[in-house]
Each structure stands twice: as C-alpha cells, then as structure tokens.
Design a protein around this nucleic acid. Sequence first.
DNA 1: GTCATTTGACCGGG
DNA 2: CCCGGTCAAATGAC
Length: 333
Amino acid sequence: MEAVEGNGGGSGLVVTELSHIKELVKQLDVHLGGSPDLCKLLAQQIFAVTERSIGMIKSGHFNGPKRSAAGAGLDSPPLSATPSPVSGVSNTPFKPNKKRKTSEKGRHQIRVSSAGGGADAPADDGHSWRKYGQKDILGAHHPRAYYRCTYQKTQGCSATKQVQRADEDPALFDVIYHGEHTCAHKTAAAAMVQPAGQNPDAQSLLQSLSSSLTVKTEGLTAGTQGQGWSTTTPFSFSSPAVTPPEHYPFSTPSTPENYFGQGMSMPTSLEPSPATSGSNHMCMNPFQAQSELQTMVSALVEATSMPVPDTTEETAVSLDDFDWNFDVNSFFV
DNA sequence: GTCATTTGACCGGG
DNA sequence: CCCGGTCAAATGAC
C-alpha cells in the first residue's frame, strides 16, 4: 500500500500510531475495571479525536480553522501575571485599560459539541465561569460570549475563555481559553489531583500512549512543514505525574451522558466521504487534534491515579458500545 | 440579601 | 474610524 499522498510519508506512521492508540485505550478499559465513568468518557474522547485525525490525514485536507487565531502566534507566555495597576481604587477617577493585548498568556482553542443538542453553550468544562460580556462579531453568525473564572476576585484566578457558536453548525462551539487557572476550586472532573497510583497498569498504558502521541506529532511536523501552522503544543509528558494542562475540552462531573447521548458526534458520523471533505467542519488541523489528544490523555493519567470516589462500580460500562474494531488499514486501500 | 447574567458604554489597538 | 474585549450598572434568579 502506498502511503496517502498529501503530506509526506509521515501520515502512514501517523495512522499506525493512531491505531495503536486505540488498542491501548481498549486495554486501558479492561485494566481500569471499576474506574469512574470519567475515565470512560475520556477514553471515548480519545477515540473520537483519533478518528478525526485519521480522517483528516487520510483525506489530506488539513483545512485549518476559519479564523487563523488558533494557529497564529500562540504561546509565548511572558508572565507579567502580576499586573500592578492596583493603585486604581479611590482618588483617581480615571479607569484602567479595559482592553488587553492579545498577547495574553497561553491560549488554547478547542471545538466542542453542545451538550444534548439544544444547548446554547457547551457543557461544563470542570471550572466555574462567570459571564462578563457578549459581543456580536463581524462576519460571525453568532455572538461571542466572554467568561472569566468565578474566583478571579477571591483567588485572583486569571483564567478566561471565549465561547462562540460555529457558523455552520450550531451544535459546535469554538472555545478559546486564555490563561491558566490558579484557583484551587474545581469541580469533580477538574479536581483530580495526583494521590496514589491505583492502577499502575493503566498508567503504564497511558504513558505508552503518550509516547505514541509524541512520536506522531513529530512525524507530522517533519512531514508537513511549511503549511503555516505553528506547532504550538507545549505539552510535556516527561513526567506522568507533573502538572498537566488543566483545560481539557470535555468533562462532566454530574451528567456525562449528555455528551454522548446525542450531541457528540460519534464514529459513525465521523467518516463521511473524503470527497466532500470541503463541506465538513473538520476545522482542526492535525496539530490541534494532537493537542486535544494529549490534553485528554493527560487528564486520563490523572484520572487513573485517583482512588475511586464513590464505589460506583456499576458504572463500569464497556467501550464495546462503539466500534472499536474498525480497521485503520482500510483507509489505505 | 446574595450572586450571576444581561446589556450598553467605554477603551484602545489596528 | 472600526471592531474586539472589558467594565459596570441594571436586572433576574435563587
């Protein structure tokens, strides 16, 4: 089989790695046994993104996001986290700058589905947000909502996010995260800290998974240089237990069913036909996909290392609900 | 009463 | 001047 054209010979390896990921996740499901459903949720996310990546690579269409914001000049978080505009209270009636430069802390854009279908916003991402503004954006069909961490005032958390419904598909939302959460308050999903490893086997698998992802990303970088995307995925997996990125796309502490009940686009609808890839909203380029994958995997690593909270052993659903047996090699026919 | 959301105004970069 | 991001008063929900 010849590798797919479009981006060097790296794609073949990529697909191989992706199929490997799926196998690993499968095994993970077995090893996790009575793990919380969050683990399962994340595993499903990994599956979905994996398939997306494969689809993109196969079709050779790495159409980036409409707005080049994501791939532009991210990262470069030159601190300055401690602004010193304090003196503003009292005498001086003059207001501080209401606008910040776009060179804020690290940004991270993701695309999520609405929860349930009719929702007007993506579901909880594990943090408490307070809406502080909404604007109609030129050229966009839907307004953009601005959120900031609920605990910005009490704990000085500077995390913010922007949520905007996708132009074409109202079920999808573009979420851009700014800054990192410094607040200690998180919901169950995001509060997973690193106690003691309860499932060493699973952790081992996940670490292996992480390695696969890293290799894959490198392959893509080498094969598709010059596309205009900046490989801005500063995720580091050198240590499995070190602070991973907090903002991973999905997480539902209370009602995880919402995601996969119907709103989530599942495997069956993920592989339409390569020919019509133009009208599809796969607005993530491979690097973004890898970013999502790595983020979710890191969350999984955390999840596996936490003790079972509420002996909800019954929640051990099987991943067999989805077609894990789909053959990656079929893409190369 | 407290807290979150709404909404128009304001600010500043491009 | 235009447009995106933020502020803050008004309003609503609990």
